[in-house]
Amino acid sequence: MSDFSDPDFEDGWTSTADARAERAERELAALKRAHVALAEQAGKDQATIARVREALESVHRAMVHDPRDWGRYKRDAWTYGVIVGWECEEHHEHDDICFGAEPLAKIIRQHGWLPADVARLKAYRTAIHALKGTS
Rank of each mutant, 00 (worst) to 15 (best):
P115E: 04
W113E: 01
V82I: 15
I128D: 00
W78P: 04
T134G: 01
Q46M: 15
L121Q: 00
L114A: 07
Y124T: 10
K32W: 09
R72N: 04
W113F: 15
A127Y: 03
A123N: 07
P115G: 05
M63D: 01
K106F: 10
T14I: 15
I128P: 00
A127S: 05
D95I: 03
R51K: 14
A24D: 14
A105D: 13
V84Q: 01
I97T: 14
T126S: 12
S135W: 12
A62T: 03
H94Y: 07
C88F: 02
L131S: 09
A21G: 04
S2Q: 13
R120A: 13
A105H: 09
Q46T: 10
K44A: 14
I107Y: 02
H91L: 14
A55I: 11
A34P: 04
L104W: 01
P67W: 01
A34T: 08
E27N: 11
D11A: 15
D76H: 08
I97V: 15
V64K: 09
L31M: 05
A37Q: 08
I83W: 00
A42Q: 14
A21D: 05
V36M: 04
E22Y: 02
V59Q: 00
Y73Q: 13
L28M: 03
E57C: 06
E27D: 15
A19P: 03
I83G: 00
T134L: 11
E87R: 13
W86F: 04
W113Q: 01
H60F: 14
K122M: 06
A77H: 02
L38K: 06
V36I: 13
D96G: 08
A37H: 03
A50R: 11
L38W: 00
A19S: 14
Q41H: 08
D69Q: 06
K74W: 02
R23C: 09
H129F: 14
R75A: 15
A17N: 12
D66Y: 04
A37M: 08
